[in-house]
Every structure is written in structure tokens, then in C-alpha cells.
Amino acid sequence: MIEVERLSFRYPGGALALKEVSVRFAPGKVSAVLGESGSGKTTFLLCIGRFLRFRKGTVRLDGADIRTLPEREFRRRVGIVFQHLYLFPHLTVLENMMLAPVHVLGRPGDEAEAEARKMLDRLDIGDLAQSYPGQVSGGQAQRVAIARALLLRPDYLFLDEPTSALDAKTADDFAAWLKGLKDTTNFVVVTHNLLFAESVATEGVYLSGGRVLDTGPVGRIAGHARAGKLVTRG
């Protein structure tokens, strides 16, 4: 369980980006964090991922304050796939996949390679092993980035705007693919794509102006988001 309590964050010299955000991500569910651009979604993700140091509020991972967890333990348990994926362009897909298992988990190279190939095959992208990230499509790169994160077997995997580089058809395929993985990892999808959120998630959080406006079933939350869009556009 990830519990966020009264989390606030202000960028140096800037406005308050998160205001007393409280939310829980229970295991066994795919959750979605919804909100418009500038609503604080990415700041929220960076705080939970320990990339931004917050002073107010707490984030607990199975009861432990994440700020007290050793870096490696935290990174192994909580994975993040960023919006721009950040696959390492100088390494092949297979090498991208093996880097963390070898250098973080200390797995022997041949064992890490076998695991990486098995994961790629399981995710139907085995033929990409020797390709470079610059040689694969946006949808394939998305899968590779998630596969790379999954090899650390995280308890939670946060996906930041996973459909931003995908067309509608690829996003649908990706949603179906992601749902097939939810039994092994708890996903939290941070997105402004309401259709995608509704198709993969069961629970939702609606962020607006750095505040949580509602949490609950994703259908209801998406409804708020749609209403919010209408108000904003009107």
C-alpha cells in the first residue's frame, strides 16, 4: 500500500504545485491519476519517486516513510517509467533490459540476459532484442521501457503519460497489453487520457490545481475530469 498524506510541494521561487494531497494506492488494483496539464500530476509523481524533496506531508510504502528507505530498496520496490521513456539510446533493447539486473541486482550477465529475453518474449517484443531504441516505434519503445522496469520486479510501477506518443489504435492495444500484466505488478497510471484511464484502471484520483478534488471508481473520476474540461474550455 502506498499512502500519501497531506503532501505539499513548492518549487523554489514558484507557486505551490501540490497542496495537501492525500491519497492511497492499494495493491491489486490499477489506479489512475487524472488531471489537466499543469494540475500537478508530474510533480506528484516526482515526489513519490523521491526525485523531488518535499518538506510537508508523508509518503508511506507499506507503512514505512519513503524518505527513510535505503535508495536501492526503494528503487527496487517502486519503479517509474517517464513520459519520454528515456531508453538508453547507446544500448540495444537487450542491453537496456540487462543494465539494472546486472548492476543493481548483481545478477550474472548470462542469467540477466536469459531473464531479459524471457521477459521480451512474454511481452511479444522478443524480436526487438538487438534493435537500438532509435530503431523501434513509439508503441514498441513504450513496451520496452515497461519491460525494463518490470525486470526489477517492483511492487508498484508508475507510468507517466504512457499514451502521449501513441496513436489511438496503438493506445488501445497498449491498454489491453497492460491489463494482462496487472496480476504481477500494481500499476499507477498518470495520464490526461481519460479513455485510456477508463480502459485500464479501476480506481482514480482527480488532481486539479495541485489539489485532490476526488478519489474513487475511475468512471466517476473521469466524469469529473470531463466536466472540468468543459468548464475550462467554456
Partner: peptide, 29 residues
């Protein structure tokens, strides 16, 4: 890109490993 460092850290690599395996090989190329 700073995102490359971020991704290295997100995978649990130590700062020197991020430099050694992610940043330096790209910078050198």
C-alpha cells in the same frame, strides 16, 4: 538529456553507475 540521468536513477543505479553506464557512453559518442 537530464532525463537519462533520471531514468538511470529510477532503475536503482548509483550516481557513479549512472555516469559510467548511461551518461559517459552517450557523451563520448
Amino acid at each position: 538529456s537530464p532525463g537519462q540521468r533520471l531514468a538511470g536513477r529510477a532503475l536503482g543505479l548509483r550516481p557513479w553507475q549512472v555516469f559510467r553506464f548511461v551518461v559517459w557512453p552517450q557523451a563520448f559518442r
